Simulated assay, not measured.
Amino acid sequence: MRRSTADRPVRTLLSPWTLERTRGRLAYWAVFTLVFVLFTAAFVTPLIWMVLGAMKTAPELAQLPQAVLPERFDLGTYGEAWDFMELAGYFRNTVVVAAGAWLLQLAVCVPAAYALSKLRPILGRWILALMLATLMLPASALLVPTYLTITDVPLVEVNLVNSPAAIWLPAAANAFNIYLLKRFFDQIPTELLDAARIDGAGNVTTMVRIVLPLSRPILAVVSIFAIVAAWKDFIWPLLVLQDPAVQTLSVALQRFEQDTPINLMLAGLVLASIPMVAAFLVFQRQILAGLTAGGVKG
């Protein structure tokens, strides 16, 4: 007779017997606290320095050794940076690029993952393997062929330079997100899909009405990955968005670097980071749920 999941022993780095001892518990919490503090400091310290540095004046930032806190906490630097670099237009461009990349990526990756997971086409495993093989290629190796394709799109013969579509189209087929979606779709019971087909639902209807509502956690994860990747990307937008009027924040901030005081540049970097940090804080529960989802309860 097979044991239930609840009866199976849980494998951990430390045995329950060790944690029951006072010395073992103290050692465990000491190591955990030390690692937590070190990792938190490594990730948070640069952000705090950037936020506080934006409030300092340029002479304060040039001082050595540099004071941790500014002489006075002046939030006016952020407003000055917003006006000096005209960030409103670049924010608008970045939102358009990120939103389009997100929507097009979902429109391509979700059907592709659903087909590989549930429709099981001929040579489906080989197709997935070839997709994953593209993840082994360095991004720099794909820049030249992708750029040549964008400058003269096959069949339609259109030049997409200085168009948001130059970023949307290459981002549409993301092998990593397809793999994440496929692994999640594999956990959805086939009986649910069979019941929908018995009721007369086609493949598209089954995907939209059955699979997608059950896949909200992983869709949230893929959405965050797609938006963040488009928001922070620099090399590709630098190549295809040559007109300053259509450039994204990452490219515009680099262009302003030489002629902008360092405190205003730090303020611009903080402003550019706020949307992604806020998005993570708002959707962190959905992100963690999607990453840890191992199955669907029927």
Rank of each mutant, 00 (worst) to 15 (best):
residue 60 E to T: 04
residue 68 V to E: 08
residue 55 M to G: 06
residue 67 A to W: 08
residue 44 V to Q: 07
residue 90 Y to N: 01
residue 69 L to Y: 00
residue 91 F to M: 08
residue 102 W to A: 07
residue 58 A to R: 10
residue 72 R to L: 08
residue 40 T to F: 12
residue 49 W to C: 11
residue 50 M to E: 13
residue 40 T to W: 09
residue 68 V to L: 15
residue 56 K to R: 03
residue 88 A to V: 10
residue 45 T to H: 10
residue 66 Q to M: 12
residue 71 E to Q: 09
residue 64 L to N: 13
residue 59 P to W: 01
residue 102 W to P: 07
residue 67 A to D: 14
residue 62 A to G: 11
residue 38 L to A: 15
residue 102 W to I: 06
residue 77 T to H: 15
residue 99 A to C: 05
residue 56 K to C: 03
residue 48 I to L: 15
residue 42 A to K: 01
residue 69 L to H: 03
residue 60 E to W: 02
residue 92 R to H: 10
residue 101 A to T: 13
residue 93 N to T: 02
residue 90 Y to V: 01
residue 81 A to T: 02
residue 55 M to N: 05
residue 67 A to C: 10
residue 52 L to N: 02
residue 50 M to L: 15
residue 71 E to C: 01
residue 68 V to A: 14
residue 91 F to S: 03
residue 37 V to N: 09
residue 50 M to Y: 10
residue 95 V to G: 01
residue 81 A to H: 03
residue 83 D to P: 00
residue 39 F to T: 13
residue 96 V to C: 00
residue 51 V to I: 15
residue 87 L to H: 05
residue 96 V to K: 00
residue 91 F to L: 11
residue 52 L to I: 08
residue 49 W to R: 13
residue 57 T to M: 05
residue 99 A to V: 09
residue 90 Y to P: 02
residue 75 L to H: 12
residue 62 A to Y: 10
